[in-house]
Amino acid sequence: MASTTLESGGSRRRKGTMYEMRRNVWAYAFIAPFFLLFAIFGLFPYLYAFYLSFVTWDGIGGPASQQWVGLENYQQLARDDVFRKSLYNSIWLFVVTSLNLVIALLLAFILNSGLVRFKEFYRAAFFAPIVASSVAIAIIFSTLFGERYGALNYVTGLVGIAPVDWLGSAAWIKPAIALVVIWRYFGWNTIIYLAGLQSINTDLYEAARVDGAGWRQIFFRITMPLMRPVITFTVILSIIGALQLFEEPLLLAGGTASTSPGGTDRAGLTVLVYMYSQAFQYLEFGYAAAMSVALFVIIVVFSFLYYRFLGQEEA
């Protein structure tokens, strides 16, 4: 590539873009598969979903049965109190499950500190839940969360706490979902943080220690500032992931066969579970598409706000 650029030199502007493209045809050929696949499996569905948000369609009659309704789906969405409830649930879950970032950061710091032996074992153990199938996880946790015969209530019962109907009551289903989500994803973030910590030059720590800094000072004055880009990355991934929670809330609240999606009083209904019901169970594809567009905008706004106010380096 370098030699190509050198040769073309000053004549580049005159010969134009087409000429450049022809010269670099092999480079384009090599990157083409990604863009082709992205166009088919990424871009097209996005655009199609955006288009669908302006039609009403039950899918049964094929594409011909789509009817243009303009902004009607969005107007309906603005009035939909179940959508608002699901949005509240999703944001609640995002806020609570961000606890997993704190846990992950502390664990990564400890693992990196040299105080722990068998690091590889812990790394693998923390990461294991990510690899497990969500159906298996849901079956195991719904057994643990059982009101009468569940292990969790048995343990809390030993210290005299009354049994909790984790998955049945409106008050407890969100904490139950959050527990599973935190358990499932803290390992992922731990690994990312650990990688970030390992890239920090140990000279800095040594220098700080020579200057008499304690653990706390090292953590807040050196580790945290240098970890900022990594933290920003994980927070934004968390925003995206948490607002799109689907499998865990769906499975814990009764699965696709549930006659009350989201559980009691829809307390465990997330935006994606609601969207799934609208599209594939009530056959309101247009309305579900409008919901997905709205969720996209919300995620962008959240990510932007975080990035704008907390994620950037202090100038």
């Binding site: 006659t259 009350s260 009530y282």
Partner: peptide, 18 residues
């Protein structure tokens, strides 16, 4: 049918649980 059943199902959970 399905949507109606789910709407009613949600209210049934409130009868049962609350």
């Amino acid at each position: 049918d399905r949507q109606a059943n789910d709407i009613l199902g949600n209210e049934v959970t409130k009868i049962e649980q609350q």
